[in-house]
Design a protein around this nucleic acid. Structure first.
Lengths: 242, 242
DNA sequence: GCTTGGTTCAAACGTTCGTTTAAATCATAT
DNA sequence: ATATGATTTAAACGAACGTTTGAACCAAGC
């Protein structure tokens, strides 16, 4: 074993530690000194390698989302090629979108459950630059899957599909990010999702088995009855952008 | 109109402003000076009236959760009394739990959508004292509704119900907190949920009409098939606490 | 009128924040 | 060996943070 530290090591060690600390304490709750301290690098190393704390957070996500985005598009391409122009089944679309995500949680080299939890939590972070960044990173993939869901559910109004896509994202984010909250709230163990007994691979697999039926049930639920003034339009409003 | 400011005014003005700013920027992202500046009170007023920034956040929630907890228990009591010992329908339980919440969003005096968004976002805040606080505030209500769901779904394993309760909380939190995120991501308007056209009352009603069928569909989805090593136990693990 | 207890005020406290600087160190190629 | 560019280092920067202080202010009771 050697104590040599190449600059590549420094960069990645910073990213790994930042990923874990941002997950545990949030963006504003994690200081540069916490990161550089845990990573055993000099305080100035972050600004030297990444430029700023904001840029560091972006890079933490970019190295993971690059794989996730590519994989999600690839899976959808493969399914659509196999279907030969026919609409996919809703379960196939969900499996491609959320299954890909959950497979990241099984693979330590892709960030494992740490990154999944970070992702789930960060989606609700209020900081403007974070939301702007995510919108840009996600736009293409979301658009593709949105269209796939439209085709998979031709009888469901498009606005309703978008709403339910939103609800599914929330259920998944929360399921991943807030595992321990529920344990506290319910006072119950929920199996070894905490990952200490059977490791994180099993945790992600268990979560998948639990959450996918729920999502599919919600997506395919009967359409709401609109009465009174609660809701007037059944069709999708005009898109704001192209 | 008078410029008289009683100390009661000061307290409530601080709470109102803090509620709005914590919602918009998160706990760590909101400084005391932002709060006292917007509320037009002296910087020291927060520590005088509440003791600390942490205590201020707790009080922001306490004044709203007192009503919400009471109302949720009251609704459940009424339903169970009406049922006369028979199990409730799942839709009744969800209507009592989430309908009560959404009714807060229609009532400006109870915090309106601002508090709902704050609640949804804060549930995923990583700070320890926040999670501890919520666990204590929520414990009794969650326990009651958990048991009601057990009775409403006698054929569903209890662990599965807890999981799905968790998923429903996530979908609802996300639906409330992250409205604008989805608009950015999808590039679509989703009706006037932003509340500028028809006001917040309608926003909450629309959301209710959209999300309740989704939740019910997820809650009543077919049970997952457990194959291989992904999941071994179908029954609920032993509770950690009483 | 004067005291009293609650409230507001400007000012400062010490700490921590993200960032910058300039020198020191390292790796590599001539 | 020495020059060069990349990296690391210790130290400091100004700003912002949550909190505290002690005097000023104000309404009510005697």
């Amino acid at each position: 074993m050697s104590d040599n530290k190449t600059s590549q090591d420094t960069r990645e060690r910073i990213l790994d530690v930042a990923e874990r600390l941002f997950m545990a304490h949030g963006y504003e709750g994690t200081s540069m000194r916490m990161i550089t301290g845990d990573a055993e690098v000099n305080l100035a190393a972050v600004n030297y390698h990444f430029g700023s704390k904001e840029a560091l957070l972006r890079e933490v996500f970019r190295r993971r989302l690059a794989w996730l985005n590519h994989e999600r598009l690839h899976e959808l391409d493969a399914l659509e090629a196999e279907a030969g122009g026919a609409p996919l089944k809703p379960s196939q679309v969900l499996e491609a979108f959320f299954g890909t995500l959950l497979r990241m949680g099984e693979n330590e080299a892709l960030g494992g459950m740490t990154f999944l939890r970070l992702l789930g939590r960060t989606l609700t972070e209020p900081a403007d630059f974070i939301r702007t960044f995510f919108a840009g990173e996600y736009a293409e993939v979301i658009e593709r899957y949105k269209l796939a869901l439209f085709r998979a559910l031709p009888d469901v109004p498009k606005a309703e599909i978008i709403w339910r896509f939103h609800f599914m994202l929330g259920a998944m984010s929360y399921a991943i990010a807030g595992t321990d909250i529920l344990q506290v709230v319910t006072g119950c163990e929920l199996g070894d999702l905490s990952g200490e007994k059977a490791g994180e691979r099993n945790a992600a697999k268990q979560l998948a088995a639990r959450v996918m039926p729920f999502l599919l049930g919600g997506l395919r639920a009967p359409l709401p009855q609109f009465e009174g003034d609660a809701y007037q339009q059944q069709e999708m409003p005009l898109p704001k952008t192209a």
